[in-house]
Each structure stands twice: as C-alpha cells, then as structure tokens.
Nucleic acid binder design. Structure first.
Lengths: 213, 213, 213, 213
DNA sequence: TATGAATGAGCCTTCATTCAT
DNA sequence: AATGAATGAAGGCTCATTCAT
C-alpha cells in the first residue's frame, strides 16, 4: 500500500511527462510549419504547449533537437501510405486507394505536409540521410511493383519514379499550396465536394496516363 | 565626345547603383530561398552581394523591404509562361509548350521556385493580395480557354483549375523537391537526359488525361 | 531552524532580485538625469548597476519601461512634501516648513529634481496624464487651503496657484540650475551656510509677499 | 554689366547662404529644445530647415557644432534684459521692467528658454566656460547695483544673488514648465489675462520682499 | 520535474560623418 | 553650394541556452 502510494505519483508523472512531450511536439509542428525553424521561438512553442520555456528545454535539450523530433514524427506518417501499395492488388484499385489516402492526409495533416515541404525545399539539411536511405529503398521497392505491372501488360509503360513524383506532387500540392488553391478557387479540402473533386481529378490524371479506364 | 567624357562617370555611377541593387536582389534570392526570411541575415546577404550591410540598407530600408522586392521580382517571372498559353494554338501543342517552359524554369530558376514555394507554404502573408488579385484573374482567363477547347470537343472534359494545379504541382516539384528527387534518382534537371525524360513524362501525364494522343 | 536553513537561499535570492532592481533604478536615475532618455545607453546604466545589459533587460523589458519606472518613483517623492502642508497649522509656520523641506529635497535628491525637470521641459510625453490627474487635484486642494487663509485675513491676497509655482520654481532652481548657481556664487546646497541662506532668502521672499513678518 | 551679371548670383547666393544658416539654426532650436541633443537627428533638423542632411553638414561641420551655435545664439538673447537693469532708474521701476521683459521672453521665446534649461540641467558641459566668465561678471555687476540701492536705503536688505536667482527661476518657470502650468491652470502665457496676472504676481513677490510698495 | 535568474551571441536599424562629384 | 553614395560605430532588443535551486 505504501509502495503503491509512492509509485502511483511516479507513474502518473511519467504518463504526464509523455503527454507533455506530445503537447510540445504538437505545438512545435504548429509553429514550425507556419514560420519555419528560424522563425519559431521556443517561447512561442512553450506557451502553446502550456509550459515554460525552461521546462520545454528539459524535454528537448535543444531547439534543433525538438525540430528533428517533430520532423521525424512527420516522416513516419508520411511514408506510411506508400507502404500500403502492394503488388497483389488490382493496379487501378491500388493506385486509386493510394491517391485517396494521400489526399486525405493532405486534408487531415496539412501542417505535417507543409513542414515536410519546408524542410525539403530548404535542402533538407537534417533529413538528407533519411531520404537517401529508407525513402529511396521504399520507392525502389514500389517502383519494382509498378515495373512488374508494366511487364505484365497490366498498365502502360511509364517511368515509375516519375509517376510516384507526380502523385506526390499533385496530392501534396493541396496541402502545401492551400492558400494559393483557396485564393484561386475559394475552396479547400475541408469542403467535402471539393475534396471528392480533387480525388477524382487526380485519380483520372494518373490512371489515364497508365491506360487504365 | 568631350561631353560624353564628362558625363560618363555620372552615368557609370547610376548604372553601378542599379547593378548593385540587382546584385543585392540576386544575393537575397539565393539566401532567402535557402534559409527563409527569418533564417537569413543581412550580413550574409551583403557579403554575398559584395557590399556592407549598412550599404545594403541604403538600397533597401528594411530586411522585409528587400524580401518583398525579391519576391515581387520572382512573381513576375513566375506568371509569365502561363500568359503565353493562347487559345489559337493547337491544344496539344500549346500544353506541351507550356509544360516544357515550366520545367525549363524549374531547371534555370530553381531558387525562384523555392522561394515562391516557401512563401506560399507559410501562408503567403506578404503575397495574399497578389494571389487573390492578378493570379486568380490570370487563371480564370486560362481556364476559360480550356473550357472553350472542351466545349469544342478538342480535349476531354476535366476541371481546368485542377488541371492547372496539376501542371504547376508536377513541374515545380522538380525544383522545389530537387533534393528528394536527387536522393531517389541520383539525378537532377541539369542532366539533359533526365530533363527530357521529365518533360516527356509530364506531357504524357497531362495530355493522356485530356484524351490527346 | 532547519526550515529557515532551507528557505534562506530562496529568500535571499528574492531579496537580491529586489535589490538589483533598486540598483538599476538608481543607476537609471543617475544616468537619465545627466544625459536624458536618448543620451543614455543601457550598457552605461547596466555597468553602473553592476550587471549585464541583458540581465538589466530581464528586469525591465525595455529602455522606456525603465525610464518610466524611474520617473514614477521620482514623482512619488516629489509630491510628498506638498501633501504635508495642512490647514490647521499657522500659515507662516506651514509655509516655512514646506519651503525648507523642498530645498532639503533639492539638496538631497538633486538628480530626481533634474530628471523631473528634463521630462517636463521636453513636454512630459510620458507624464502628462499624471500631471493633469493627481497633481492638478493636489494643487487644487492646497490652493483651497490658501484661499481659506486669505478669506480669514490670515495672509494677504495672492493667487494661490502662482504662489505654488513660485515656491516650486525657486526651491527647485537650486537643484536644477545648480551648475549655474555654482558658477556664479561658487557654492552649492551641500555647503551648510549656503543652504541656510537659501532657505531664509526663499522664506522671506514668499512670506513677505503674503504680508507675514 | 557682365561683371555684375556674374556677381549678382554670387551675392544672392551669399545672402541665401546666410538665410539657410538661419533656417538651420531655427530648426535646430526647435528640435533640440524638444528632444535634447541626443534625441535630435540631423535628418529631422535638415527636413525642417528644408535642405538635405549632407548640405546641412556643409554649414555646420558637426552635430555638436550646430548645437553649440544654437546655444550661443540663445545665450545672447538670454543675457540681454539683465544688462538693461541700470542703477540710475528707480529701483521699483527697474525691477518691474526687468521682470516684465523676462516673462515676455518666456512667452515669445519659450524654446530658447527650454533649450537653455535643458543644457544647464544636464550640467552645461558645453557652456560652463560662458557661465563662469561673462555671466558671472554680469551678475556681479548687477549685484553691485542692488547693493548700492540697499546701502542707500532704497530697498530692504536681501542677498542680491539669491534675488536674481529668484527672478530667473520664477520668470523662466512659465516657459520651462509650461506643460505643468497648463496642466494645472489650463492656461499659458499666450493668454493675455494670464500673462498680466503672471507679471503682476511676480512683480509683487519680488518687490514685497524688498519693502517696495 | 520545474522554474526564475542570468548570460552571450547575434541581429536589425539608426545615425553622424566622409567621399566623390 | 549641394548631393547621392557609402561606411563604421553603436544601440536596443531577441533568443537559445545555462545555472542554481
């Protein structure tokens, strides 16, 4: 009983600690994706996360540490949908699903998309290793799938890597260039009709070039 | 001849002034597109432009003034190719040309593309007006052209604005996400083969979805 | 005892903090009263207060904040003696005491007097509110006292506000124009004889015009 | 005729030059008296004087040079009325005239008064010599006059230097502390009634203490 | 785990002044 | 006599980081 009495707070604290870490990561994503690494101040992030700057530095020793942690969390989410693209499915169906999931991500996690975009555009000084390692491998694996489909005559021939780039470019565009899209169309992905329009338009674009449908 | 001898220095100076301004704008583009507005220091830019920070501030009263000047110059270049897309050409030909010119721009002015991208991704606080005004109007005009072609049965029906977004997204991707493209393919647009591959891939993508070829 | 042993450092620190704040205010008064708001540099003040410029800015977020804080502290001291002038005393005695206390202040707090003077002369951009509010009210209250004495025939009629101005002007002159006084007489209020001379001269001046003695 | 044709512009120019110098001195007085030496910028003064900063520096090689020139011009005006106080007049009449002329100056040249005040309060680093030389001599001369009157039994005995200080203090107060006076009374010397009130009040104050009237 | 205090580096900007014309 | 260009010094302020508790 006594032991439990002592342990309880510790456990609660540890759980709280994890929660606060999450809160900081969330706040970091919010701020970094809006003003970039250099435009963000720890104070700003701390306030948003509901703790003091000094305390924030207890969880992440350095501004850059925090930035990398945020980025890494984003990257994981980012690679996920591509992994789901598998060789056994029907090509049209698999690609349709992948495109939809990417655009869904653009709608639900636009900040993550933007932070990723900012980082890459600025030369990805902190991410280059990840790009040349795991990402490259993953793309190669999926490119092999596409090449298989081409070899089997199930889709028209098209350089698979350019295809992947095109899918990424178009789907992420609706998150990254949201202000521009909105300035021109007056709408964004949170509008259900517009969301569906975007999905269909992108699916048709990709599938048509592969001779599907 | 004598008059010219006297006038020369004055004229030279004025020309020098303009040249230095240009040099500053160039340096600004280089630095801002790499580290963003907040990551850039005036010292850095000044050194790159070959003058002192104080002297730089003689040309641009404020860091933000310089930033906006750089941005405005980019924007002008950016809108240019779209304006060349005209109704009188053959649709396939016009689109092929537009795509090629955009990718050429991505190869020759990648920094401009990236700076533009950074600004938009961060919400375009300084550019929103331009986006909602001139850009929107230009896109509407070109969308009308595309709708005309659709009405005439010359291209398959496709929402023209999504089409424009797709072209922008894919063509600019090769500038904005160049590190990623390079990490995955090991090549970039300065490689002539890769450049042509990219142009063809993108042209096929767009044209296929419009039932051309 | 043990508790006190633990609490001590914390208490000491807090006290230290207050002390440092005081030190900064003192240094600020010294510097501001000598070279004015714009002539003062934070570095100068920080050195005099025995801390770093950055640390100074931890206590006062802004140069102007510090200036206002210094000024407000001066103002409080400044209004004090007038409040002591009360209706129940003998007029001659009350006025004599007031004049002496003002000149004493000029001797003991000449910097405060000078800072106040500088601020007013420059149009009191930061103090106007205080002047039109509390100060005006206080003067009106005391003017009423003087008018009462006049109505009772205890002092000769004289516009009470001009009388107050005259007292202020003359008594503060020995602090504000001390260099001039010294250049002409070779003496200042720290000289006890000169101090008494000044007090008597001023008392006679004011009292004579009210028909007292 | 030809010679005159050439000389004319030169003469005009020289006259213009003197005028511009005056304009700069005026502008300098205006600005310095409002924000002090350190608060003033040459640009500000140049704009007010209607020329460029660089051109201003042609007339006054240095900011401090300009400041001293402004100050010196003020000082001349400042000493003038005291010189007019002569032994041959009736004491009461002479003092009345002197007080009136000082208050008139406070009304018509308040900026000069304030600049002089600012300088003295800050320790007169640039004026000390003038104070200890000419000013001291002048005051001594006039003190001798007053001592003569005292010796002749024409005025009651009173330390003449304190008397002079009192006159200066009170009369200049209405220029230097004008904001305070206005905050409390709602009026200033440009109001004719208030002006006369002030003159009379001050005259009575001084004369009463000398047993006159 | 949490925080108040303290610090040093760096940055944008202002400004008096100089140079060249 | 006048001016545009250029510069160096200094200043206020922000910020990530460290210290001590």
């Amino acid at each position: 009983m006594v032991g439990s009495g002592i342990a309880a707070p510790a456990r609660r604290q540890r759980r709280d600690g994890a929660l606060r870490r999450e809160a900081v990561l969330d706040a970091g994503l919010e701020v970094f994706s809006t003003v970039g690494l250099h435009g963000a101040s720890l104070d700003q992030i701390a306030v948003r996360a509901g703790l003091s700057k000094t305390n924030l530095l207890y969880y992440f020793r350095t501004k850059e540490d925090l930035y990398v942690a945020v980025l890494r969390r984003v990257l994981d989410v980012w690679l996920d949908p591509l992994q789901a693209l598998d060789a056994e499915s029907e090509p049209a169906e698999a690609l349709r699903r992948y495109i939809r999931s990417k655009i869904t991500l653009s709608r639900d996690a636009p900040r993550a998309s933007r932070l990723f975009c900012l980082e890459i555009v600025q030369g990805a000084p902190l991410l280059r290793a990840e790009l040349e390692g795991p990402l490259r491998a993953l793309v190669e694996a999926k490119a092999a799938v596409l090449r298989g489909w081409i070899a089997d005559g199930r889709i028209a021939p098209h350089d698979p890597r350019h295809l992947v780039f095109a899918i990424w470019a178009v789907t992420q565009h609706y998150a990254d260039f949201a202000v521009q899209v909105e300035a021109i169309t007056g709408r964004d992905l949170s509008d259900e009709d517009f969301f569906e329009q975007t999905v269909e338009s992108t699916q048709r674009l990709i599938l048509a070039s592969l001779g599907l449908t």
